[in-house]
Nucleic acid binder design. Structure first.
Lengths: 231, 231
DNA sequence: GCTATCTGATAGTGCCACTATCTATGATGG
DNA sequence: CCATCATAGATAGTGGCACTATCAGATAGC
């Protein structure tokens, strides 16, 4: 198929497809003549992956490129890939939130303390991961941020969160073991990690709405009344 | 305190503080003379809230403004805030993933089907929430995206995810009931929802790394044996 | 008085994800 | 054969966003 059909089938505009090729997210089409190229199902699939990661997972072009590079590299040992894939896609909150750069001694945002707490958690649960990994740091940053806004005691529910996280991780791996063939393993982990975050966040919100309605709302009727869709 | 000290104490630059005031995220200081204003602890706290929501939660300025508007409104019932804060915080690109706009009849991205599945889930679990809420729609979009990239069977683990979500929501509400006084309720829910997402995502990644190491890795390094849970 | 700091305003910056436009070439069809 | 259309590839531009720079004029505190 030519680029026009690829565009139609994926809902991505032609210039945007060219942009993705330039950015290294999508392999170029196979040239059949100096100004004609053929695209196939792999391009359709890849394009859908890109859009899913960006639209639903909220990843940037650069992040998508990293994920895709890992997905495309056939050399990497599976387990390294899994760890890496999971590591690399800490969405946006992953970078350097520049939380303690003022360094005036007055505050470090409680990051040091939070890191200790994270290390302790990992030790307690005997999780096999580097304590200094990006995910561990992201966790510490989130904990420190909670402390900074006056919710340091939120850490008390950390264990409940960790239980839930273990359950989700177990479900993920079970799914992978059940349905995924070896060549698709890495992509599945990438997809599952990114889209799974969005999935879980949405579920959590629904469950929260339900729980808070039962606790605080629940003026007899069902459902949050009003609930104006948008503005 | 004057703006310089506020800046020092929070690590936010003076121009940025002024920017937040202009944007309606932060109340202006109390003017003590035509060109001097005094700031207090509430400004420090608010500024930290803003940075936490943006840096850790990944919210945009506009999203932070909406959350803060809700936080500042003393009339707002808690569960209405949940509907608001919880649903407004799809990262930066989040709003309308524009997933089915091609509408050429060929594909709708499976959104319709996904919505049905979501409605069924809500019914089964007897969750008290409006089935057309943004959270429900976000869930449907995530499910549809999974289907579009060839992982429609991922929906099989939806129940495990939902169990975990319920557990987290229960922990959230428990925390709120234990530690939060009425005036801070709304802010706590906002903070907990946004930062809780980041917290859980990080925990999930750690748990995944652990689980995948147990399943696929451990080639002679630390903790060799497989110890696979099932199957 | 002198200097550092402040308010409030306007304009500018840098990044990012596209999007527009152009040339030259080849495909398609009557 | 020739008109019309789609295409590759390249360069430049757009719009949104989160700041950031600069300025004038006023004040604080020594």
């Amino acid at each position: 198929m030519r680029i026009g059909e690829l565009s139609r089938r994926t809902g991505v505009s032609v210039p945007t497809i060219k942009f993705y090729v330039r950015e290294g997210l999508l392999p170029a089409g196979r040239l059949t003549s100096p100004n004609q190229a053929a695209y196939d199902e792999t391009h359709v699939r890849r394009l859908r992956l890109i859009r899913a990661l960006m639209d639903v997972g909220g990843l940037s072009v650069a992040a998508v490129r990293e994920v895709i590079t890992a997905v495309d590299d056939p050399e990497r040992p599976v387990h390294a890939l899994l760890g890496e894939a999971a590591e690399r896609m800490v969405p946006r909150y992953g970078g350097e939130p520049a939380e303690g750069e003022e360094g005036d001694g007055e505050e470090d945002g409680g990051l040091v303390e939070a890191r200790e707490r994270v290390d302790a958690l990992i030790r307690e649960r005997e999780w096999r991961c580097f304590p200094g990994s990006l995910a561990a740091e992201a966790l510490a940053v989130a904990l420190a941020a909670l402390g900074a806004v006056g919710h340091e005691r939120f850490a008390e529910v950390l264990d409940d969160y960790a239980d839930a996280a273990e359950r989700v991780a177990r479900a993920d791996l079970e799914y992978v073991g059940r349905h995924v063939v070896r060549e698709e393993l890495v992509e599945s982990v990438a997809v599952g990690t990114v889209l799974g975050d969005a999935l879980f966040a949405a579920l959590r919100r629904l469950a929260q709405i339900d729980a808070s309605d039962r606790l605080f709302g629940g003026k007899g009727e069902k459902g949050t009344e009003g609930e104006k869709e948008k503005e």
